[in-house]
Design a binder for these strands. Structure first.
Length: 279
DNA sequence: GTAGGGTTAGAG
DNA sequence: CTCTAACCCTAC
């Protein structure tokens, strides 16, 4: 009875953001101790900060005007996310262990999320406009997958972290695009029907056109990433976490690259773009 | 201490 | 009713 919900004031939010910019996400205790923010966050606990930060993440798209989120067909209790597998995009099929019969049985409810895969997919598919990092990526993923609240906020918190740490950009920079065929722009003739060939041991099924498009987009991204910096990118120096996350993502990128290469062999090279991983 | 899942008050 | 945000619980 005593505890009603205390709405966060704008001042508190600002203090929180400033705190995160200064100490980094996850350092809730430090933030709350810091005399610079302490008084403003006087009646908030470190857990409150964490929760609020999470909510801010889930809240990403409020300023964008359009879009809110997918109408939500209502997700069932046992699947937090439901891949819609469209036929023109990158389809991520994780199948590492005989595995992951998602939404098949009421059993493992938490084997589905592949944050990095989704983020990577979004990165590859989105045309990069300024500031598209967060909102656009979230939107992309929500459009493509049915996302439930719990999953969304989880994803957004991960994504937010990546963005804050500049990891997203780092990942992008690890790709180098090289055009094998010079001259004619080769605007990626969309040839459909090349895909739908499942790779034997790879965990990714991708269509050739998608890769080409992704590569093209990536080139732009890289160029822009050089000169672009995100709000609080300078705030974080946790190289441990950065490299850990980068590793994760790298693994995925690696798979993607291998899958493509393999496809390429079988299918002969129909594209003029080669993606090579720079380590 | 923190992350993440769960619960619930309040708004639409 | 649905959805969001504040709050609670608990494993790590």
């Amino acid at each position: 009875m005593g505890n009603q919900k205390l709405k966060w004031t704008a001042e508190e939010e600002v203090a929180l953001m400033a705190g995160v910019a200064k100490h980094g996400p996850g350092k809730w205790k430090n933030i709350i101790i810091d005399s610079e923010f302490a008084h403003k966050l006087a009646n908030r606990s470190n857990v409150d900060l964490k929760d609020k930060w999470r909510n801010l993440g889930a809240n990403y798209g409020q300023g964008s005007g359009d879009n809110a989120m997918t109408p939500k067909g209502k997700a069932t209790a046992d699947s937090a996310v439901r891949p819609k597998t469209q036929n023109s995009s990158l389809a991520v099929v994780s199948n590492d262990n005989v595995n992951e019969k998602l939404s098949q049985g009421p059993q493992n409810p938490k084997s589905v999320p592949k944050y990095n895969a989704m983020i990577l997919e979004a990165l590859s598919s989105l045309k990069d406009r300024n500031g598209s990092e967060f909102g656009a990526i979230m939107r992309f993923i929500e459009k493509k997958y049915e996302v439930q609240q719990s999953f969304r906020r989880l994803l957004s918190s991960k994504l937010r972290k990546l963005v804050l740490q500049g990891t997203l950009e780092k990942v992008q920079k690890r790709y180098k695009i090289r055009r094998a065929a010079s001259g004619s722009k080769t605007p990626t003739p969309k040839q459909k029907g090349v895909n739908s060939r499942a790779l034997q041991k790879s965990m990714l099924t991708i269509s050739a056109e998608t890769v080409e498009d992704a590569a093209k987009t990536a080139a732009d991204k890289i160029a822009e990433a050089e000169n672009k910096s995100f709000v609080a990118a300078e705030a974080v120096k946790e190289s441990e976490r950065v490299s850990r996350i980068a590793e994760d993502t790298d693994a995925l990128l690696m798979h993607l690259k291998e899958g493509r290469t393999k496809e390429d062999n079988t299918n002969s090279n129909s594209s003029g773009v080669t993606v090579i991983l720079v380590v």
